[in-house]
Design a protein around this nucleic acid. Structure first.
Lengths: 195, 195
DNA sequence: TTGACATTAGAACGTGCGTTCTATATATTA
DNA sequence: TAATATATAGAACGCACGTTCTAATGTCAA
């Protein structure tokens, strides 16, 4: 048995704590986390993590996990497959929340029913992220109310005329007469295969 | 001009602060946030937010935004469309990180190249979340190495025999001879349409 | 063994934290 | 108007925070 207390394990315990508590632990709490008996030891290791760039202190001196420890690594593409070692590839790290949701205050989620956008790769049961108030451009997928029903369609404007077409030949293109209510623009879609 | 300082605006400023700083502000910082000149006023409002269930204090007495203010609301499905008021629907709130990534420590992201899984709604350019070490079940989509190349395929096992088939008729089913390296199982896929 | 370095322990300290009290101003209702 | 909540200000306080110091212990190489 070697010492279980190295930079890696300390980082992990911090990340775990933050994931659970949504805040960083105090030095006293870290004494338990790191299994040491003095705050000075905590300070000692914290300094090391800061050197390594795993931790930061913000302007007010509060501890902050620096990006690296968040989200999950983006390792490449399917063709490249797995990185050889699973270890220190100079990895880019992505948080799904940050990646997918540019404007959290004006966005919301919607579960997709039906297959009208299947040609765009949006299937029944998927979740889409809708951003309110954004001006749709040609080719954008919008959430629109037509004849009292909400649907997702491709948005096209040519001069005054607006058309809404499905990404599925089984559905016919819609030429909205009077009022056209746009609920928002689809900015992303997600699908979960397994729990 | 009415008073701009009500529960709603205070909640928003707290959520904004947390989104930026990844921590809750101190009472002194809240004095600036709320534009008041005494910590007792901050305490006064904090108590109100706690009553309303917007804030909590954890076991150690630290402030915590209670779920409600996180992620973005899941409002229903496409058929239902927009909630009438955009306001107080008893909304479920979802964080994409939590929703999509069950096991952050063993997961990673991969960008999809090619259209071999287009039938499953996974298109070129999508990101997939791959979980290492999970045992694939029939019908799961796996990341596998075949003849020195990494691909995504449907996994099927029948007795000893394993087959890998694409979700695209243009690709033929693979019957791995000897060794079959499974890099992981695809647990989710995401696609971004707009920035 | 000796020396250098890395790691742990303990205690002491100043500062800023969140709490709580009193007092005053502003809104609301009868 | 008077009476009653509601909201703001300021000050005081105890306490836990993170820092820093000294000293002891463990590890490894010469």
């Amino acid at each position: 048995m070697k010492k279980t207390r190295d930079i890696k394990s300390i980082e992990q315990s911090l990340v775990a704590f933050y994931r659970n508590q949504k805040r960083m632990p105090t030095y006293t709490e870290m004494m338990e986390l790191f299994e040491v008996r003095s705050k000075s030891v905590v300070s000692y290791w914290i300094d090391k993590l800061i050197e390594k760039g795993i931790l930061e202190k913000d302007e007010q001196g509060y501890l902050k996990l620096s990006g690296i420890s968040f989200g999950i690594p983006l390792v490449g593409n399917v063709a490249a497959g797995l990185p050889a070692s699973a270890e220190e590839t100079p990895r880019e790290v992505v948080s799904m929340d940050q990646y997918l949701i540019a404007r959290p205050d004006t966005s919301f989620l919607l579960r997709v029913t039906g297959d009208s956008m299947i040609g765009a790769g949006i299937m029944d049961g998927d979740l889409v992220i809708v951003e309110r108030g954004r001006l749709p451009k040609n080719g954008d997928i919008v959430l629109a109310e037509v004849d009292g029903e909400w649907t997702m369609k491709y948005f096209h404007r040519k001069g005054r005329e607006v058309t809404l077409e499905a990404a599925n030949p089984a559905y016919s293109t819609i030429y909205p007469r009077e009022e056209l209510k746009i609920g928002g623009v689809i900015t992303a879609s997600v699908r979960k295969y397994l729990m």
